[in-house]
Amino acid sequence: MSTISEHKKISQYGNVPNLVQDGLVERWVRSAKRWWPFYLMLAPGIIYFFVYHYMPIWEARIAFEQLRIIPPNVWVGLQHFAALASSPIFLQVLLNTVIISVMKLVFVFPVPIIVALLLNEVRTPGYRKIVQSVIYLPHYLSWVVIGGITIAVLSPTDGAVNDIISWMGFQPVPFMTDAGSIRWVVVFSEMWRSAGWDSLLYFAAIIGINPELYEAAEIDGAGRWQKIRHVTIPSIAPTIATLFILNVGLFFSTGLDQILNLTNPVIRSQIDIVDTYVYRIGLQTGQFELATAAGLLKGFVGMVLIVAAHLASKRLTGKGIW
């Protein structure tokens, strides 16, 4: 009703050009007048993203320049990209990044979903809250702390894990210096830190499922497992698909802080990723152009992956992020 009256009101401006009368601008003005308090609330977010996420895109041009403190910068084309590619270990670094990313997608991504499903099955609200609080806790710890805990727990001389291994009659394993173990240490420490917190979104999605669906399933004789399989999982599938696609987009961002706190010279070749390499070669030596080139490359690959995953998801499940 109000929309019609507003339309009539605006139509009184008979001599206003068509663009304003019927076009996007008219609709935007109308919408702004009507919803201005919401736009006002949205403004800080928009300003934040514009200043910190969009304006820097223009500065990314230094990936193609030699940065001069005293302007102007010198255009060098793809020189920094060529320097990255010509590094004797860059291929190994790329390979490590892909391996660790795939491991995290395969082994870490499903865990919060399982945790959320399990939490939903806990029937005592008090107990559920305690469990939730405990599993969210690691998210608040920095990687410096988690790195220290991981190294202490996995110590071959007095770490808890190796104490158990020795108690079971096996030889202690030097996890932190063993090339075969270190990537698993990265995956499991990530899992420990993020599984609880990441389950929050899935758990919220589960809570939002219409209870009538469960009641109907119960009437049809479905047990717990069948309700999970035929009601819960299909209902949260859009959330899973969206988060999976977003995770794919972050494929090359495998965790600078984490690796820096878990690495040592012996196993560096196994877990040296694009981010750590760029940090050493680019930032620590002041070669910001090189670091920007690597960041741009990462961003480009991430964008390609996210679009590809979105299209694949659309085709397979009918759901994507747009």
Binding site: P88, P265, R268, S269, I281
Partner: peptide
Amino acid sequence: AAALDAATNVYNAFAY
């Protein structure tokens, strides 16, 4: 820088 980094990594790992 890249060559120095790579050679130093090889030394550090093998020395250990």
